[in-house]
Structure formats: C-alpha cells, structure tokens
C-alpha cells in the first residue's frame, strides 16, 4: 500500500534544492508567450537581408525543433522520479514540462508572426539529427524499460547537460546578446530573457540529479564522462554547422564568444559533478544553485 508523504510527519521538505527551484518557477516561470509583442520584430525581419533571414530562420528551426523534442521526451524521467517517491523533485518537474511547452509555443509563434511557411526541418543537419532525432529520444525512452541509475544518468547528460546546457543555452545566450547589442527584435530578446531563466532552473535540476546519482553510486561519474564524450562530438558539430555556414556570421554573432561561453558553462557543471563524488546526498540536497555551477 502506498504511503502518503504529505499527510505524514515528513510533510514537504522546502529546503531541498528541487523544492527551492519549484518555488522559483512559480514566480519566474509564469510568463505568457502570447503576451510578448512581436510587432517590431516583424518590422525588423522585413528589413533583414537574405543572409540575415536565412540565419535567423536556421536558428529558429533548431530552437523550435529542440524545444519540441525536450517537451515530448521528458515524461519518462518524471515517471521514474515519481515511482521512486521523490515528491519534491516531481513537483519541480511539473513546472519543467509546462515551461518546455511554452518554449515550443513561443518559437512557433515567432515563425507564424513573421509569416514564414514551409518545412523548417531542412535546417536540421546530420549532427543535429543524431542528437535530437536519435540520442535524446532513445535515452529518454529507455527509462520506460530501465529506470536504473545508469539509464537516468545517460538520460540526464543527454537532456540537461548537452541539449539544454550546451546547445540551447549557448544558442539563446548568443542570439540574445547579438540582438540586444544591435537593438533589434525586442520581442525575441524579451522571450530569450525568459527562456534563459527557465533553462537555468532546468539545467540546475539536471546537475542536481546527476550529483545525487554520483553521490549515491560513485561509478556513475564514469557513466557521465563516457556519455559526455560520446555526445560532445555531434554537439560541437551542431555548433560548427551553424558557424561554419558563412565566412562572417550576421548580427555580429561571435564564433569565439559562443565557444568560450559554452566551455565556461560546461566546465563549471563538470566541476560541480566531480565535487559530488565527495559529498553526501544530504549535502547535495541542501546545495545552493551557485554550488551546482549555476550563476543565477
């Protein structure tokens, strides 16, 4: 028979990191994609030259496809966490999935508002497909049959560390910085501000989950490293497919800035995961976001 946590003396542990992220999500994750004004963006878009339009749509296609993928693929992880009886983590994950759905909505809305039609998957390169069409859905779907710590670690590395932590975060940061510096696409800039904040919580949960798994089972550190090594090549390939497309990137997008930012974030998170080898689960549950490599 099930045991009800919240009616027992245990109650809810509001001090746990996932619970703190949950409370944060209730305040910061409630923006409405429909309320973002894209009228100036439409005017800016109409003034873009062909190279700028092509790059803008390429990026949007990658972001939109990625957000659809993470929305469709997250459920098995929530199911596993739920079955393990981790109520606080599950409560945070309910905000996580809802926010991903809103990310799909805003990127599709940008396409629709700009009047772009046609099949945007033409922008999905082989490297992109390896990650979003194969590695990600396979790793997440595996959790339906195999909820082991190893499977959870491989799923989280793929989802949180590579897809969100490396690709989405770098893409959002670079595009946000470029548009903001140029004073263009104000609605998109506003959306990216929200997106970055949401993703920061999601990635923080991923680092927490992996840290907990490493603290519980030391060999998971090797699982994490091997999975990371496997995925880094296509992940860097996705970035290269974008920055290698033209000699000079439009919008002042800076190749070196993208790579440096991505490496900095990657390094901070890997250092946090390595530290988890010497920490207790209790210590990880009480960790701050900064201790898990998240600046916000």
């Amino acid at each position: 028979m099930r045991v009800m946590q919240t009616v027992s003396e245990q109650g809810l542990d509001h001090s746990m990191l996932p619970m703190r992220l949950y409370h944060k999500a209730k305040k910061l994750g409630v923006w409405d994609p429909r309320e973002i004004d894209l009228s100036q963006d439409r005017a800016d878009w109409n003034r873009f030259n062909d190279v700028e339009k092509e790059m803008s749509m390429r990026l949007n296609s990658l972001f939109l496809g990625g957000e659809e993928a993470v929305t469709r693929d997250l459920l098995p992880l929530i199911q596993v966490i739920s079955k393990e009886g981790r109520l606080e983590e599950e409560m945070f994950l309910t905000t996580f999935l809802w926010e991903e759905a809103k990310h799909v909505e805003i990127f599709r809305r940008m396409v629709d508002e700009l009047g772009v039609t046609g099949d945007l998957s033409v922008y999905h390169s082989d490297n992109y497909k390896r990650i979003f069409y194969e590695y990600l859905p396979e790793a997440m779907d595996r959790l339906n049959r195999d909820p082991s710590p190893e499977a959870q670690a491989e799923a989280s590395v793929t989802y949180n560390m590579i897809v969100e932590g490396m690709l989405a975060e770098t893409g959002y940061y670079s595009t946000f910085m470029s548009f903001k510096r140029l004073g263009i696409m104000p609605g998109t800039v506003q959306a990216f501000e929200y997106l970055k904040r949401d993703e920061s919580r999601h990635i923080c949960y991923g680092v927490y989950l992996l840290s907990r798994l490493i603290a519980e089972h030391d060999h998971i550190w090797d699982v994490v490293n091997k999975r990371m090594e496997l995925l880094l090549e296509p992940a860097i390939g996705v970035v290269q497919d974008i920055i290698g497309e033209v000699d000079e990137l439009p919008f002042g997008l800076d190749k070196d800035e993208m790579i440096q930012y991505s490496m900095k974030q990657f390094g901070a998170r890997m250092n946090a995961l390595e530290r988890a080898r010497n920490l207790s689960v209790e210590k990880i549950q009480q960790a701050t976001e900064e201790e898990l490599g998240e600046a916000q």
Binding site: M228, E229, D256, I259, G267, M270, N271
Partner: peptide, 17 residues
C-alpha cells in the same frame, strides 16, 4: 575531449573555435 573542454588540458596556443 571533455578534459580539453573543461580546460584541464589547456589550449595555450591556437583558437578553440
């Protein structure tokens, strides 16, 4: 590769991009 990405192996000359 992840050791290089983390900066534990350092690119002291050259361009990472």
């Amino acid at each position: 590769i992840s050791t290089l990405m983390r900066g534990r192996l350092k690119l002291v000359k050259g361009n990472m991009s």
